[in-house]
Computed example of a mutant assay.
Amino acid sequence: MDRAPGLSVRLKLTLSYAGFLMLAGALLLAAVWVSLLNFMPEMGSSPDGPLSRSDFLRGFASAAGVVLVFLLVFGLLGGWILAGRMLAPLTHITDATRMATNGSLSHRIRLPGRKDEFRELADAFDTMLARLEAHVAEQRRFAANASHELRTPLAISKTLLDVARTDPTHDTGELIDRLHAVNTRAIDLTEALLLLSRADQRSFTREHVDLSLLAEEATETLLPLGEKLGVTIETSGDITPTTGSRALLLQLTTNLVQNAIVHNLPEQGTVWVNTSVRPNSVVLTVENTGENVSPQLVSTLTEPFQRGTERIHTEHAGVGLGLAIVKTITHAHDGTLTLTPRSAGGIRIAVELPAISPHADR
């Protein structure tokens, strides 16, 4: 924003200090003046006549003028120095802001000294820079991974079309089937990216939602997939009212249950879906059997295009955004996402969201 030039804060503070000092001095001298007028008696006489109060007061007025001039000079110099010392931390904060504006997010102020308003501001700014740097790094990784994932189906499609053009005798039906599969994967990936962006921007209308009903709906939808892969799905829990986007929370629940089914044992696997109520929150928990997963690997599973254990069938490979979408939707609903490896194998994933009263007006 373009602004007209004005006085610096240091100069304003200097003038304020000097003005206040001058005012205090003037008030003090005025009080002495009034006291002298009211209580000083007539003083001795001189060859020219009596030495009156007016003669003394004129001399006092001259001295008072000298004092006020001294206070003005002292206030300006002292105020300039004090204002400079007080505003020195702002210089560091301003420099860091300019560096961040130019793209340098690694710089930190790290203002020394005891806690005060300036140091709280500097610490808050450092925290903001750290989060912003992490967010930008995450976005760059996401953009690179998304580009790679999108390039793969496009490259496969180009190869298939090149083969068809150079080999007219190639089976057209097989080519169409492979192109259809590749195109479907590209569409799924694009839709997942759009969903991720929509959830991240929080561009949705909030309404009352019962997570237990969403868990039942997601389970019923994915029950045929579980039966096909030999995975048993067990649901339990309480009514869990919260607020948010029903469509996004259903997508979150579906992603969790589908991941739990696909990342499971080759045979006789189990998925547990549970909803529970806490004093100020509701919790959706999805657990599954499967291979042992290290805590280090679990901590990376919510990153885009990160995959953990191998899936049961490659036709359910997904696009690598399932848990990334879950994480984004959870944060967009002011919730917390917790992933914990199970000692017997598999993962326990808990989504905790703010609760509302089940009897609240709808």
Rank of each mutant, 00 (worst) to 15 (best):
R3Y: 02
S8T: 01
V9L: 06
K12H: 05
L13P: 10
L13I: 01
F20Y: 12
M22L: 04
M22S: 02
M22V: 00
L27S: 13
L36N: 09
F39K: 00
F39M: 00
P47A: 11
D48C: 11
A61S: 05
S62N: 14
V69F: 12
F70G: 11
L72D: 08
G78E: 13
P89V: 02
T94G: 14
N102S: 14
G103Q: 00
L105W: 03
I109M: 11
G113T: 02
G113S: 12
A122S: 10
F125R: 10
T127D: 15
T127G: 10
A130G: 04
A130D: 09
A134V: 01
Q139K: 04
S147T: 09
L154C: 03
L160N: 04
H170C: 02
H170P: 01
T172E: 12
E174A: 15
A181W: 04
A181C: 06
V182N: 15
R185F: 12
F204H: 09
F204L: 03
V209Q: 02
L211I: 03
E234I: 02
T235R: 09
R246N: 04
H263T: 11
P266E: 04
G269H: 08
G269M: 08
T270A: 11
S281V: 09
V282H: 01
N292Q: 10
V298W: 06
L301D: 05
E310D: 15
R311V: 09
H316R: 07
H316T: 02
G322D: 10
L323T: 04
A324E: 05
L337C: 02
L353F: 05
A355H: 13
H359W: 13
R362D: 08
